[in-house]
Write a protein that binds this DNA or RNA. Structure first.
Length: 666
RNA sequence: GCGCCCGUAGCUCAGCUGGAUAGAGCGGCAGCCUCCGAAGCUGUAGGUCAGAAGUUCGAAUCUUCUCGGGCGCACCA
């Protein structure tokens, strides 16, 4: 609702400036004043105009004041400080519109493809992977259609590198360290399953073991590295025993990853795999296109002689002829002199597919059934009918910021191929990695050097088998929540207690990883994550639960309270200290769609987490100050009830976008 | 060496496209459960926004430099 009025005010000012001064400004700021006494919206526009009009800001503000005051929904406009235009809204009118759930529309046309998780299917997921998946899942929820917004048609995919070196490492561990055949691997996996053991956990240890083994015997290091490469190539080629072992392990671990993520409410629509990118020859098609458009060329001299390299946008833009400038030594190698394609090359092909520019598609097979939809996986020859995901208008890749450079190269390649719009709508939703605090690292039994202790965080390492496994973390979060629930609600049924504990544990975890902005390195600490007080998920959940408790006892539904507001004479009840403290809840609640818009534009779910906390805090203040159930003035009681209802409604919505469920009790 | 990111209260972090007296949580101290559940609320102490110069009516925010920290720079994936 705030955004609706903001847009109206902006349009009004724009028209006014054009009419009076024939000026149009690039951006008209309409901000939230630092204090409620200054009103609900502040315009510093007079400062902007002072120089151009050669007038004092205050004088300009005075000229605009009266006309702005005539805007619908505005109660008064005051001039403050050196020339601020402070807008006071018609509180009663706004409350009535909000009670009717009027709000700005969020959404648009086109298909948006969000890619996240993308964990190598060779070991258990850890906290770093959780940050990725939770960021991506929350962002997809922000985009998708739901009861609040039309949103965008959105697909969620999880890229599976099932033919990479990390999977090769596990195959080496199986065949060399364990001396297993394909049949042995099958038997081993069945054994694990029967014993209720997690395959991804077993692989976690094996991966650490084989990583050490490569380097353990100095004279044989070269030989073992070669073995690793040969295994990789066998897997890429397919149609042999090692490739079958890889397929078995990768698929098994992938299933485990999906189970882990489902515990956090994270689901996928499609799982494109590298094996299909290879076998369906995506790269060959992309290569032909790149050569045809002059983006890829054979280097004939210099250090990259014999390689196919990518013509860089800078030299292309400057119109530099290749022959004149000599070899571009910094050009990115796409095809090595031995004819094999690099990772970036494959990624370019894959991204052409995402935009429907490759002229090819995957085969599709059903892989997993969720409660509301099917998750598909890529195959060479798929089932019919099937959906297709390679027709995006905008894409979001949730990938660690250590991959900023390769991501930029893929983006640049699209630009060089003159897919400029596609390149512009390519968002690398990057984020800094997750380390561990020294305290948590030591709790996990890791021995720290003095150098480590001096650092702010300790980096996790899959190769060393060092890190916090996702399932362990989720288990501990839920167990901690359960302990609290048991103490507070011994009267509840076991099933309900379990459900509440799960909502709280997951809510705390998701909030913990979302409250940091993306480029902040997180030093993960068990003690901090398990805190359920202050700026946490449970704090926000608790506010919503408290609001619900009021309605249970009041004998009035939230809907009825909202509907009743339409007939009340509110103006008197929303002024003064008491009235303003009620109004501030509505004001904060009114900013929901504005904050959502900003969070989408910045691709920053943390903005919503901050907002959820602020709204919960606002509600808790209100809850403490106004005792609703004992209020004797019926009209006022109804307004207070509606206030609790609006806070709860928007809290449930914003938490929903963060993938956090409000439990039945706390 | 080159490129990107960061430096804000004791600690962990916010601070929207420059705007009013720089905020929050945790921790500290002092209070609040005969009153809708205290996973809560109130009050209080605590900052040279790393440093310097510049642009601007106005800078934590933009520019340059210095200092300190992180990450990335393979014919690996």
């Amino acid at each position: 609702m705030y955004r609706t009025l903001q847009l109206q005010l902006q349009a009004r000012i724009e028209a006014l400036l054009m009419e009076r001064y024939e000026i149009s400004l690039a951006n008209l700021a309409v901000e939230l004043p630092p204090k409620i006494e200054f009103g609900e919206m502040a315009l510093p526009v007079a400062f902007e105009l002072a120089k151009r009009l050669k007038k004092a800001p205050r004088a300009i503000a005075q000229e605009l004041q009266a006309e702005l005051a005539a805007t619908p929904g505005v109660a008064a406009v005051e001039i403050a400080g050196a020339g601020y235009l402070n807008v006071k809204l018609d509180r009663a009118a706004m409350v009535k519109r909000m009670a009717a759930d009027e709000h700005a529309a969020v959404g648009g046309g086109g298909f948006r493809l969000v890619e996240h998780t993308s964990i190598n299917p060779n070991k258990a997921a850890h906290v770093g992977h959780l940050r990725n998946a939770i960021l991506g899942d929350s962002f997809a929820r922000m985009l998708k259609k739901d009861e609040y917004k039309a949103g965008w048609d959105t697909g969620v995919q999880n890229y599976i590198d099932n033919t990479g070196v990390q999977v090769a490492d596990i195959v080496v561990a199986m065949t060399e360290l364990q001396g297993m055949s394909l049949a042995d691997v099958r038997a081993w996996m069945a054994e694990l399953q029967a014993a209720g053991k997690r395959l991804d956990y077993a692989c976690w240890d094996l991966y650490a073991e084989v990583s050490q083994w490569y380097e353990a015997d100095a004279p044989r290091v070269g030989e073992r590295r070669q073995l690793r490469l040969d295994t990789l190539h066998a897997i890429e080629a397919g149609g042999n025993e090692k490739a079958e072992i890889a397929e078995l392990i990768a698929t098994g671990v992938l299933r485990r990853h999906l189970e882990t993520m489902e515990r956090l409410g994270i689901e996928y629509d499609f799982l494109p795999r590298e094996s299909e990118i290879l076998h369906l020859h995506f790269w060959e098609t992309a290569r032909a296109l790149m050569v045809e458009r002059g983006v890829l060329y054979l280097e004939t001299e210099g250090k990259n002689k014999g390689c196919w390299v990518m013509r860089r946008a800078i030299s292309a833009a400057a119109g530099v002829e290749l022959s004149e400038s000599g070899p571009d030594e910094d050009a990115k190698i796409i095809v090595r002199s031995n004819g094999t394609v690099t990772y970036v090359g494959k990624d370019i092909a894959y991204h052409l597919w995402k935009y429907g520019l490759l002229g090819k598609d995957f085969g599709y097979a059903k892989f997993r059934e969720y409660a509301t939809h099917t998750c598909w996986i890529s195959t060479t020859h798929g089932e019919d009918p099937h959906p297709s995901f390679g027709h995006a208008d905008a894409i979001y890749n949730v990938i660690d910021s250590r991959q900023d450079d390769p991501q930029t190269q893929v983006k640049e390649s699209l630009r060089a191929l003159s897919y400029v719009d596609e390149s512009d709508r390519y968002t690398h939703l990057n984020y800094a990695f997750v380390g561990l605090t020294a305290r948590t690292a030591e709790d996990l039994g890791y021995v720290l050097s003095d150098e480590d202790k001096a650092k702010n965080f300790i980096e996790v390492s899959g190769r060393k088998g060092f890190g916090v496994k996702a399932d362990d973390l989720i288990d501990r979060m839920i167990a901690a929540a359960r302990k609290e629930v048991e103490a507070r609600h011994p009267e509840l049924e076991e099933a309900e207690r379990a459900q509440i504990a799960e909502a709280i544990g997951v809510g705390a975890l998701r909030f913990f990883l979302l409250r940091f902005t993306r480029n902040t390195v997180i030093a993960f600490d068990y003690q901090d994550a398990l805190a359920f007080d202050g700026e946490t998920g449970p704090y926000a959940q608790y506010a919503a639960v408290r609001a619900a408790n009021i309605f249970r006892k009041a004998g009035v539904s939230e809907e009825a309270a909202m509907a009743a507001v339409a007939d009340l004479d509110l103006a008197e009840m929303l002024v003064g200290d008491e009235g303003t403290s009620v109004w501030e809840v509505w004001l904060t609640a009114s900013r929901l769609s504005l904050v959502l818009e900003q969070a989408i534009a910045a691709a920053e779910p943390a903005m919503l987490a901050r907002y959820a906390f602020a709204l919960a805090q606002q509600f808790n203040n209100f809850y403490h100050r106004h005792h609703i159930l004992t209020e004797t003035d019926e009209a006022r009681k109804m307004l207070l009830l509606a206030t609790a209802a609006v806070a709860r409604r928007e809290l449930v919505r914003v938490l929903g976008w963060l993938g956090i469920v409000v439990p039945s009790a706390m």
